[in-house]
Every structure is written in C-alpha cells, then in structure tokens.
Amino acid sequence: MASELRDTIPTFGESGEGGDEVDLTNWSALTSSNLASSWRDIGLIALVAVIVIGLAEFAVKAFNIKPYILPAPSAIGRTLVTRFPDLFWPHMKITLMELGIGFVIGAAIGLVLAAVVTQFPLVEKIITPYILLLVTTPMIALVPLLILRFGFNSIPRIIAVALAVGPMVMINSSTGFRRTDLAKIALAKSYGASTLQIFTKIRFPLALPMIIVGLMVGAIFGMLTAVGAEMVGGKNGLGNQLMYWSSMVKMENFYAIILLLALMGVSIYIFFYWFGKKYASWQA
C-alpha cells in the first residue's frame, strides 16, 4: 500500500529518486547504497563470493604462489577459525575496547559541541578551522607524542581514537543542526514550545540523519586510527599483531587479522546502516 501510494502520488518539496546530495561534508553516498534486499539477491551475492574465493584458491595452487605472498584462502580461513580464541580474540578485545571508549568520548564531545556551536554562528566560524585541521590531520601522527606522555598502553590509542572520532562527528552533526526549518520551528512555537522543546522535538530529529552519518564515518575513522596507533607502538591489539606476524612471515595469521579487521569495518557499517533505517528512514 505504502509503495503504491508513493508511486502514484507526487510529493511536494522533496527531491525524487536518486536526488541525494553528494558533497564533501555530506557523505550521504555512504548511506544510500543498498544492502541485500531479497533472498534472490542474497543468493546471487553469495554465489559471486564463492566464485571469487574459489578462483583465488585455484590461482594460488595453479600458479604455485608462495604462502608468504598469498596463502590459500582455505588456509587463512582455517587459521582464523582455529586460532581465533587463543591467538586473535585477546587482541581483538583490546582493539574493540580502545575503539569503544574512544568512540564514546569523541562522539559525545563532538555531538555536544555541534549542538551548542551551531547556535552561535560567530563561534562556529571561529572554531571551524581548528576542527577542519583535526579532521584532516591523521591522528596516528600524534601517537608517538602521546606514547611519550602516557606510555605503551591503551591510553594514547584511546585519545587518538577520540581525536579522530570527535571532529568527524562534529562536522557532520553541525551540518544537520544548521538545517533550520523555520516553518517547523514556528509550528512548535505556535503551541508555546520552549527552547529546549524546539531542540529536542524539532532541531534534533531534523539533524539525526546527518548525526548518524557522522557517527558511522567517525566509527570507521576511529577503527583505522586504533589499528594504526597499535602499529606505531605498544605490545598488543590487532594492529600490533599485524606487525608481529608479518615480521615472522606467518602470513596466514597476518591475513586472518586483515579479514577480522574487514569484518569489524563492515559490521560498523551495517550497524549504522540499520540504525539509520530504523531512526532516520523518513529521509529517503
């Protein structure tokens, strides 16, 4: 019924299909790609994956590729499954913990700053260059400095993650909070809404799609930063293990970790995609 209505009835004031804006701060291109939608699609996707992996397996064997360049996919898969509990999980736990804590701190600060700063255009203009600086500087570059101050533990990495997440969340959320729909604010005011009510009932929901995009991009950047920071220094975490196993030329372990990281990244994406569908689906 719903889709029927949408097909036959023109909508007002909305861009049609494929009218998503794509620009540097928007990132809506990330959210607009479709995940698998029907069983037939899922079957097809699985089939292609099987063919690709099968071809890789075949190529490794047929061309006699050395295991230290590319181990067979089956060997990587076996290593991942059998060694996950003892070899990989303890390090993955640490990476996840760093990412989780850093993300929560960074996202909270970024979100609050965005909500406050967009209320004061002058303040926003003054601090935007610094935020841009933080967004564009790789936070991994700060890790050696942080290690000097905090030592070879998780704290420098958590700080680096927070520094990577915060500005990313802030810059996207600000775009959302700047979307002031005066007619909707007037509507709330006509019922006597307070400033707080206008924020919670109008401005925040209006900004939510962009906030979710910010959280998604922030989480992915946070993961890159966590792994990168572990590669720079420290005794544990998946990034550290990547360095370790490649120096030992144990490439099954190395590729298994790469696979784990890819899975983490995709999970982050899928989680926020689902979150966006659930809470911001009004914005097609």
């Binding site: 209505l5 909305e14 009004w282």
Partner: peptide
C-alpha cells in the same frame, strides 16, 4: 502512515 506516504 508517514507524511511522505500521503498526498498533498
């Protein structure tokens, strides 16, 4: 229904 599902 959500507003986008309704006619003007």
């Amino acid at each position: 229904k959500f507003p986008r599902e309704l006619s003007g």
